Computed example of a mutant assay.
Amino acid sequence: MNSARDPRIAIVGAGLGGLTCARVLERHGSSVTVFEREASADARPQGGTLDLHADTGQAALRAAGLLDRFHALSRPEGEEWRVLDFATAALLAHQGPSADGGRPEIDRGRLRGLLLDSLPEGAVRWDRAVTGVAPLADGTCRLLFGDGTAEDFDLVVGADGAWSRVRPALSPAVPGYTGVTFVETGFDHCDTRHPDLARLVGNGSMLAKGAGKSLVAQRNGNGHIRAYIALRAPEDWQVASGIDLGDQQAVRTHLLRMFDGWDESLRYILRNSDSGFVNRSLFVLPAPHTWEHVPGVTLLGDAAHLMPPVGLGANLAMLDGADLAHALVAEPSVDDAVRAYESIMLPRSIEAATGSARGLDRLVPATAC
């Protein structure tokens, strides 16, 4: 940063985008503090596998000086995609890994760990829940915490996801339900305990889709397969159906009824998973989502452009983080940096949101294919 002093920068949220921003800033000698409401890095599972694109996620890791370490941990074979007929499980389409390994897979938790390990001790303050922010008249911003305390910063970066506590300082927008829910479940030691499913999925991901519902299964690390039962349904579908998501057998029975007529090798996913069922209703921000510039505060990742999980969100969040960090290093003031960053990020996110909406329609078609 070309200024008389090191600016006080706070990042709210220790997800992939916020940590990428922190890492790039630290690499350029700028101090930053990341505030995270979770008690520790291991407080909850971090989700499934991600494919990192060369021009977004991998570009961000290159800026962070972590690309070689990423390649050592990633699974190039995880790029494989298999599309199966829902009624017969016949292979309809197959995409193998690209010759250059252009979009290798990595478990989200492992990628987050790579970023966390790259930061100095104390850069992330765990168990610090943010309740809101207040832009101040002098162009700085006050960060408000759940314990009633507050701290002032030259810049507060909202990297705190779908239900961001920072977003209201910039925009009144709130996420809306897409009409699609993912019901998540999983399989452990799949090659030995679930070999038929392992062969069905292959080295990467498998998709079978019908009208208003799909099955997606993807390889994770350590022999785990994570599966998603995708449904076009009301947000409270389980309530309307009288289903307790904690009653595994009741959920299985209901889902098997919904997927009547599907091939039994695919219905195996519904009958035999090792873990329970987790309901994940999909929400998005209105598109386009923009805001008038406010000094002292900005957003990145899902806080700025929540979109369907079809492979773009994590990549864009990381690129957002790297772009913001580069602007803060290059521009003469914090405000100039944020304006430069937003002028790049907002148009890019509008285009991506449109593409992601189309991707969700292809993943879970409303009518028969």
Score class of each variant (00 low, 15 high):
residue 4 A to Y: 00
residue 194 H to F: 00
residue 80 E to V: 15
residue 363 L to D: 15
residue 198 A to S: 07
residue 142 R to G: 09
residue 148 G to Y: 11
residue 38 E to V: 07
residue 308 P to T: 00
residue 198 A to W: 02
residue 264 E to P: 03
residue 189 H to M: 00
residue 345 M to R: 13
residue 133 V to K: 05
residue 18 G to K: 03
residue 284 V to N: 02
residue 6 D to G: 10
residue 59 A to Q: 15
residue 289 H to N: 15
residue 8 R to D: 11
residue 323 D to Y: 07
residue 352 A to E: 12
residue 280 R to H: 01
residue 162 A to F: 10
residue 64 A to F: 14
residue 217 A to R: 11
residue 281 S to D: 02
residue 2 N to Y: 06
residue 222 N to P: 00
residue 117 D to T: 13
residue 277 F to L: 04
residue 248 Q to P: 01
residue 271 R to M: 01
residue 253 T to M: 05
residue 16 L to P: 05
residue 80 E to H: 15
residue 352 A to C: 12
residue 335 D to A: 09
residue 317 A to Q: 12
residue 271 R to W: 06
residue 358 R to G: 04
residue 144 L to M: 06
residue 72 A to N: 02
residue 8 R to E: 12
residue 232 R to C: 11
residue 132 G to P: 02
residue 288 P to A: 09
residue 207 L to V: 06
residue 345 M to A: 15
residue 279 N to R: 04
residue 267 R to T: 06
residue 354 T to W: 08
residue 43 A to S: 15
residue 117 D to R: 12
residue 156 V to Q: 06
residue 151 E to M: 05
residue 109 G to W: 10
residue 348 R to Y: 06
residue 330 A to R: 09
residue 306 L to N: 07
residue 191 D to R: 11
residue 263 D to P: 04
residue 94 H to Q: 15
residue 309 P to R: 04
residue 301 G to L: 07
residue 52 L to V: 06
residue 36 E to C: 08
residue 72 A to H: 10
residue 191 D to F: 10
residue 69 R to K: 10
residue 22 A to I: 14
residue 114 L to G: 07
residue 126 W to D: 13
residue 44 R to S: 06
residue 252 R to K: 15
residue 166 V to W: 06
residue 37 R to E: 12
residue 316 L to K: 13
residue 45 P to L: 05
residue 196 D to Y: 01
residue 142 R to P: 02
residue 141 C to Y: 07
residue 299 L to I: 09
residue 137 A to V: 11
residue 6 D to C: 13
residue 19 L to C: 07
residue 63 A to S: 14
residue 232 R to F: 12
residue 187 F to V: 04
residue 73 L to W: 09
residue 349 S to L: 05
residue 184 E to A: 00
residue 138 D to L: 03
residue 29 G to A: 08
residue 212 G to H: 02
residue 307 M to I: 08
residue 184 E to M: 04
residue 286 P to M: 04
residue 3 S to W: 01
residue 315 N to R: 14
residue 225 I to A: 13
residue 109 G to M: 09
residue 331 E to D: 03
residue 325 A to H: 05
residue 74 S to G: 12
residue 167 R to T: 09
residue 60 A to T: 12
residue 330 A to L: 03
residue 296 G to M: 03
residue 204 G to W: 01
residue 207 L to S: 02
residue 271 R to K: 09
residue 282 L to H: 02
residue 114 L to Q: 11
residue 113 G to K: 02
residue 155 L to G: 05
residue 216 V to G: 00
residue 66 L to C: 12
residue 224 H to N: 11
residue 290 T to Y: 12
residue 141 C to K: 02
residue 209 K to C: 05
residue 1 M to W: 06
residue 231 L to T: 09
residue 257 R to C: 10
residue 303 A to Q: 07
residue 203 N to P: 01
residue 349 S to G: 05
residue 16 L to K: 00
residue 40 S to A: 14
residue 305 H to C: 00
residue 225 I to H: 10
residue 81 W to R: 14
residue 233 A to F: 07
residue 239 V to D: 14
residue 86 F to A: 13
residue 88 T to W: 10
residue 151 E to V: 00
residue 170 L to A: 09
residue 339 R to G: 00
residue 267 R to V: 02
residue 28 H to N: 12
